[in-house]
Amino acid sequence: MNHSPQVALPQGMTRRDVIAVISEIGPDLNLSGAAIFVLTKLIGSTSEKDWTEPGADPTFYGTQETMAERLHMTARQLRSHERNFERKNILKRDTKANGAREAGTGRGLLFTPLKACFADLLALRDQKRAVTKRIKELKSLRSVRLRRMKEAIARLAPEALEDEAVASVLARFNGWPRSDRLHSLGLDRLEAHVEDAAKLCMELEEIIENLPGSSCEPAETFRSFIQEDNQKNPSVSCNASVDERSAGKPAHSGFLRSGPSGPDICRENECEADSGVINPKLEALFEPEQLFKLASPDFQMTLQARSSQITKEAMIDAAHDMLSPLGINYSAWRSACGELGRLGATLCVLVLDANRDHPQTPVRNPGGALRGMIRAHKRGNLNLVGSVIGLQRRRGY
């Protein structure tokens, strides 16, 4: 048998990994589905140790007739596939003049070229995965832009539709590709589209702010960013004493409490049933600058990498970019945006991320915790305000 002393799979890789990689990147090698099927079957019929042993030549010794019968094709079709693999430098044909293969003489289809270039195929697979992951992130970010655009449009008064600038923006918005066609754009075009979408959102919001008589507020029927609605402003302060020990408790210990933190005798509790709103004095906690101070260093760096200004939209984009590092599935983010609004979802991500290093009860599974917060919100038990307050106390602000 011929040996190639320099040929070896990367450490820890086996024949099974070769088959898995070929199955995944076969289309990128211009292999049809049938060709991928044949190639993986041929590889699977070689010796396992020849792939793991340095210098050994993985070889297929079976006859074309026998293998063709196993693959439910003619010998001619199998021969065509083998020649195609040889042209692509996947295998080397080392047979007798009549095409015969013999294990005793080492004659057969040698997969040494594939073994030699497997490291390059691994790099191609990793690159493909990175592109796929980035496209998935961009599609999710486009959904954020789409929601932002619809919220801005909901703020437009009927007479504003007659404005030329507004009409121009809406025409460009109508030209956005559908969500189910984003993947077909490719990475570069999708990157450009998401960037243009952000600019269009900013353009419409700026137009709305400058329109005469514009209140810059969404319609009353439009969903609030957070679950507490601040349209009413009862001036009720809590008359209960403050539990000093709460400063040392984990910030997310209040996730499942929907009411104020005071006892039953607290006047704030008495008023809550009637008002259903948060204390107006706590509104400052939801300012972007305040949230930025409470965020983790990773969150802050992510925001600064995207924007030089600390705005609500920058906070939302930063929360979106933190999903992958935190291991939060995009479906959970979309669900949070649908239930809590984009700002509410951002607050959830920010609090979960900030509490990963909690000295007593760190958040170890942010993805699961976010879904738990969504379920708590559906039950009416989520207290984002209390969570932010707890984080503020732990930060010492």
Rank of each mutant, 00 (worst) to 15 (best):
Q6M: 14
Q6H: 15
A8V: 10
M13S: 09
I19K: 11
V21G: 03
I22D: 02
I36K: 00
D50W: 09
P54S: 04
P54F: 01
G55Y: 11
G62F: 02
A75H: 11
R79A: 15
H81F: 14
N89F: 11
N89H: 14
D94P: 07
K96E: 14
G99E: 04
A100M: 00
R101T: 05
L109F: 12
D126M: 13
T132D: 13
R134F: 05
L138T: 09
A152C: 03
I153S: 01
L156V: 04
A160D: 15
E162I: 08
A167C: 01
S168F: 12
L185V: 05
L185F: 04
R189E: 15
E195C: 02
A197P: 00
L200W: 01
E205N: 14
N210F: 03
T221G: 15
F225H: 01
N233Y: 03
S237E: 13
S241P: 05
D243Y: 10
G248H: 10
G248T: 07
K249G: 07
K249C: 10
F255T: 02
R257A: 10
P260I: 00
P260M: 08
P263C: 06
P263M: 02
E272F: 15
S275A: 15
G276E: 00
K281R: 13
A284I: 14
Q290Y: 01
L291E: 06
K293R: 12
Q300M: 12
A305L: 07
R306W: 08
S308K: 12
A318L: 03
L326Y: 07
G327Q: 08
Y330F: 11
A336G: 12
A336C: 06
N355G: 03
D357Y: 06
D357S: 14
T361Y: 11
T361G: 05
G372C: 04
A376C: 02
A376L: 15
R379E: 13
G380T: 06
N381D: 15
N383K: 02
N383L: 04
G390V: 06
L391A: 10
L391Y: 06
L391H: 09
Q392W: 05
R394H: 10
